[in-house]
Computed example of a mutant assay.
Amino acid sequence: PDFDHWFSKIKTFYNEQIAIQNGRLIREDDWWQRLLRRTSGTSFAVYTDELGKVMGYIRYNIQNLTLELLDFNAINYESQQNLWQFIQSHTAEVEKIIGEASNQESFGTAFLNPQFQQQIVQDKMIRIIDVERFLCSYPFEKIDEPLYLNVQDKQAEWNNQVFKIEHEGQVTIVKTPKNEAMLTMDIGKLSALMVGYHSLDWYVFRKEASGSDKTINQWSNALPKGYPSFYDYF
């Protein structure tokens, strides 16, 4: 098969998929080449529909009787299952299959007998450097009334502001409104909230976010739902 032809299709499919996912890295061509250089012997398997359209792919490596899954992207359950069947076809030549998956994917439920070792690793972090610019680009879902955000940031004084977000997404810095109208959060917890790591109620329960019941409800309706996944390393 023509590797360049299929590699181009894989990259197009990847970009289309991450555009509707939360937290994934946009891979430029240079980044793809870096990935290939980093892992020698990298192979791809592609699942297509009857018209040849890519519906899913895996990037993997086999070494020392271990199959390591480096990428696993599928558009639906059918393509996911077919890719797993391909992986299963290698069980005669490998003793172990390893890989990474987001904890929220409930990975074990994909198998009839999900008895395998899982290790939870919290190795990601996020930090909003410029809250105003971040809010201007953020994909809020529903803003019926203006939202107010009081940010507490000990390291970046320019973020210690009260921000007003209008229903069309305009962001301005304002003087402090009434406390009950604001959502107040530390920059670290706010950063995690805005990428969907936990719901706002989770932070309220832990006293890491404060505001009136109305304010919390408004913010909960405005924030898009979706747990972040990130599989690339720098």
Score class of each variant (00 low, 15 high):
Asp2Asn: 11
Asp4Lys: 02
Trp6Met: 12
Trp6Gln: 12
Ile10Lys: 15
Phe13Asp: 05
Phe13His: 08
Gln17Pro: 02
Ala19Cys: 06
Gln21Ser: 09
Arg24His: 11
Glu28Gly: 09
Glu28Val: 08
Asp29Asn: 13
Trp31Met: 11
Leu35Ile: 08
Thr42Arg: 14
Ser43Asp: 01
Phe44Glu: 07
Thr48Pro: 06
Asp49Leu: 05
Lys53Pro: 04
Gly56Gln: 06
Tyr60Lys: 07
Asn64Asp: 13
Phe72Trp: 08
Phe72Pro: 10
Ile75Cys: 05
Glu78Cys: 00
Asn82Ile: 06
Thr91Lys: 11
Glu93Val: 15
Glu95Ile: 07
Ile98Lys: 05
Glu100Ile: 14
Ala101Tyr: 12
Gln104Trp: 10
Gln104Pro: 06
Glu105Gln: 14
Ser106Arg: 08
Ser106Gln: 09
Thr109Pro: 00
Asn113Val: 06
Asn113Arg: 12
Pro114Ser: 07
Phe116Pro: 02
Gln117Arg: 13
Gln119Trp: 05
Val121Cys: 04
Gln122Phe: 12
Asp123Gln: 09
Ile128Asp: 02
Ile128Phe: 11
Ile129Ala: 06
Ile129Phe: 11
Val131Thr: 15
Glu132Pro: 06
Tyr138Leu: 14
Pro139Glu: 07
Pro146Lys: 03
Pro146Met: 14
Leu147Gly: 07
Tyr148Leu: 05
Leu149Arg: 00
Val151Gly: 03
Val151Asn: 12
Glu157Ile: 06
Val162Ala: 02
Lys164Gly: 00
Glu166Leu: 11
Glu166Ala: 01
His167Gly: 04
Val171Lys: 02
Val171Thr: 10
Val171Phe: 06
Lys175Ile: 11
Thr176Ser: 07
Met182Asn: 02
Gly188Asn: 13
Leu193Gly: 02
Met194Thr: 04
His198Glu: 09
Leu200Cys: 05
Trp202Pro: 01
Glu208Arg: 09
Glu208Asp: 11
Ala209Met: 10
Ser210Glu: 08
Trp219Met: 07
Asn221Ala: 14
Pro228Arg: 10
Pro228Ile: 00
Pro228Ala: 09
Phe230Trp: 15
Phe230Thr: 08
Tyr231Met: 15
Asp232Phe: 09
